[in-house]
């Protein structure tokens, strides 16, 4: 089966003189939840921006379902949904209108919309806030709006950037449950996060980024084996990479 997302030899960033990412290569298959971890400044957000098509690769290419964004901009965008780290909302739109606009943009019919949005609103306990404007929302509620918009679409690929900060425990659990469900239905999810314990529990694979390069990637078992300590946690391994104890990688 074709990978949903393939990133090949991606070198990129904001200026050609000083690229942030160096030769990043990874694939994501349907039904995979991949954790993207790394220190602040390791290049997680830059990677995400490249995948979203907000930055042009200097070298290499990114394909979603086999196509690059240059080949088919709308088809590419149609296949992915994005939850940003900092929620950005239309300040002039109500929660309901956010969902409606998403439905319009991704061409979701009315019955599907009703069913999905009703469920999402209930799941995140926002039913009573349908007609509220974002100025009355807390950070966590704004985050929930972003998540609801993304999961309303049900695309093949989800890009989720540090989703847990600010969410209440029910919100976090609902998000994790939703991700599990989408995975079962064949979606691929790329999630960047610092909450390693949760990532360890839920992600199928990990990509540890360090200084713009992939230090190590694979299932936790594979990474542990490489690390040479089957009792090490993701946290231990991640710290080792971050501190530059990288002899085991080679």
């Amino acid at each position: 089966m074709d990978p949903v997302l393939s990133v090949e030899h991606l070198t990129g960033g904001y200026s050609r003189q000083r690229p942030v990412l160096h030769d990043v290569t990874f694939d994501m298959n349907p039904g995979e939840l991949v954790g993207l971890v790394g220190l602040n400044g390791a290049g997680k957000s830059t990677t995400i921006k490249h995948i979203l098509g907000l930055l042009d690769p200097f070298e290499g290419e990114i394909r979603v379902a086999g196509r690059t964004i240059r080949q088919d901009r709308l088809g590419y965008r149609q296949k992915l949904a994005y939850v940003p780290e900092l929620p950005e909302l239309y300040e002039q739109m109500t929660l309901e209108e956010h969902l409606q606009l998403t439905a319009m943009a991704y061409h979701i019919d009315r019955t599907t919309f009703k069913e999905r949005s009703g469920r999402l609103l209930k799941l995140f306990r926002m039913e009573k806030k349908r007609h509220w404007f974002p100025s009355h929302f807390s950070k966590g509620m704004r985050q929930k709006v972003m998540i609801m918009c993304a999961f309303l679409v049900r695309p093949d690929l989800y890009i989720v950037d540090e989703p847990f900060v600010g969410l209440d425990p029910i919100g976090i659990q609902s998000l994790l449950d939703l991700m599990e469900e989408m995975k079962k239905q064949g979606a691929a999810i790329l999630m960047s996060t610092h909450i390693l314990s949760t990532a360890e529990q839920y992600c199928d694979k990990f990509i540890i980024l360090h200084d713009g390069q992939i230090a190590v990637q694979g299932t936790l078992e594979m990474i542990k084996q490489k690390f040479g300590d089957s009792r090490a946690s993701l946290h231990d391994i991640y710290l080792a990479v971050a501190r530059g104890e990288t002899k085991w990688l080679n």
């Binding site: 709308l74 949904a81 994005y82 239309y90 972003m146």
Partner: peptide, 13 residues
């Protein structure tokens, strides 16, 4: 200004 994460991502020409 419209939010990049929403309007910027819509598959709308």
């Amino acid at each position: 200004p419209l939010p990049q994460a929403l309007a910027g991502m819509y598959p709308v020409s």
